[in-house]
Lab assay of single mutants.
Amino acid sequence: EPSQADLDALLSAVRDNRLSIEQAVTLLTPSSGGGSGGGSMDAKEILTRFKDGGLDRAAAQALLAGRTPA
């Protein structure tokens, strides 16, 4: 399960175009075949909204942490 520091680094990389959204989703869902963790939004949607400015960093982190299976 990614830590808050991992999520923060991942969000920074996506925002700075050092990591594509697809690459980030793969890192967030290493063994689930890329499927959502059952959250209301999947990781790709969360990351896309964050990059487009629709979500701030704290909200994106909380959503990603919340949808990651324990």
Results as ranks from 00 to 15, higher is better:
residue 30 P to C: 14
residue 39 G to W: 07
residue 53 G to R: 04
residue 15 R to Q: 08
residue 54 G to T: 13
residue 34 G to C: 12
residue 60 A to V: 06
residue 57 R to A: 11
residue 41 M to N: 05
residue 22 E to A: 08
residue 56 D to K: 04
residue 6 D to R: 07
residue 6 D to V: 10
residue 25 V to G: 02
residue 37 G to L: 12
residue 23 Q to Y: 09
residue 51 K to S: 03
residue 23 Q to F: 07
residue 36 S to F: 14
residue 50 F to D: 00
residue 21 I to T: 02
residue 20 S to F: 02
residue 20 S to C: 03
residue 46 I to N: 01
residue 30 P to Q: 13
residue 12 S to K: 06
residue 31 S to Q: 11
residue 3 S to E: 10
residue 11 L to S: 00
residue 48 T to K: 08
residue 48 T to L: 08
residue 51 K to Y: 05
residue 66 G to L: 07
residue 67 R to M: 13
residue 46 I to G: 01
residue 38 G to E: 13
residue 70 A to R: 07
residue 33 G to V: 09
residue 52 D to V: 08
residue 9 A to Q: 09
residue 40 S to E: 07
residue 6 D to P: 06
residue 29 T to E: 08
residue 16 D to E: 07
residue 7 L to N: 03
residue 24 A to S: 02
residue 51 K to V: 04
residue 47 L to Q: 00
residue 36 S to R: 07
residue 37 G to W: 11
residue 14 V to K: 00
residue 69 P to Y: 02
residue 17 N to Y: 03
residue 62 A to E: 11
residue 52 D to A: 14
residue 17 N to I: 02
residue 49 R to Y: 03
residue 70 A to P: 10
residue 58 A to L: 10
residue 18 R to G: 04
residue 7 L to D: 02
residue 55 L to C: 03
residue 2 P to N: 12
residue 23 Q to G: 05
residue 57 R to H: 09
residue 68 T to W: 10
residue 18 R to H: 09
residue 39 G to A: 12
residue 27 L to A: 05
residue 7 L to E: 02
residue 3 S to V: 11
residue 59 A to P: 01
residue 8 D to Q: 10
residue 24 A to L: 03
residue 63 L to N: 02
residue 70 A to V: 12
residue 13 A to D: 05
residue 4 Q to H: 15
residue 37 G to Y: 13
residue 59 A to R: 06
residue 10 L to H: 01
residue 40 S to L: 15
residue 42 D to I: 07
residue 1 E to H: 11
residue 60 A to R: 01
residue 9 A to Y: 11
residue 63 L to D: 01
residue 59 A to Y: 05
residue 68 T to M: 13
residue 59 A to I: 06
residue 39 G to C: 11
residue 10 L to E: 00
residue 11 L to E: 01
residue 59 A to H: 06
residue 68 T to G: 09
residue 20 S to K: 03
residue 41 M to L: 09
residue 28 L to A: 03
residue 24 A to Y: 01
residue 69 P to A: 07
residue 44 K to G: 05
residue 9 A to S: 09
residue 40 S to G: 08
residue 1 E to W: 14
residue 64 L to N: 01
residue 17 N to K: 08
residue 22 E to I: 06
residue 27 L to R: 06
residue 7 L to M: 08
residue 63 L to R: 03
residue 5 A to Q: 12
residue 57 R to I: 07
residue 50 F to W: 15
residue 9 A to M: 12
residue 70 A to C: 14
residue 47 L to I: 04
residue 43 A to R: 06
residue 4 Q to M: 15
residue 14 V to L: 07
residue 8 D to S: 09
residue 39 G to N: 10
residue 51 K to F: 04
residue 6 D to E: 13
residue 19 L to E: 01
residue 43 A to H: 06
residue 3 S to F: 15
residue 53 G to P: 01
residue 1 E to Q: 12
residue 8 D to L: 08
residue 14 V to W: 02
residue 36 S to D: 07
residue 55 L to V: 03
residue 45 E to W: 06
residue 60 A to S: 02
residue 64 L to R: 01
residue 61 Q to K: 15
residue 52 D to Q: 15
residue 18 R to T: 10
residue 57 R to E: 06
residue 4 Q to K: 14
residue 12 S to D: 15
residue 8 D to F: 12
residue 40 S to P: 09
residue 18 R to Y: 07
residue 8 D to I: 06
residue 60 A to G: 01
residue 5 A to V: 15
residue 62 A to F: 04
residue 47 L to G: 00
residue 1 E to A: 10
residue 15 R to P: 00
residue 37 G to S: 09
residue 12 S to Y: 04
residue 11 L to M: 04
residue 13 A to N: 04
residue 62 A to S: 11
residue 52 D to C: 15
residue 42 D to M: 10
residue 61 Q to I: 15
residue 70 A to D: 14
residue 60 A to T: 05
residue 18 R to E: 06
residue 25 V to P: 00
residue 65 A to G: 10
residue 44 K to W: 14
residue 24 A to I: 02
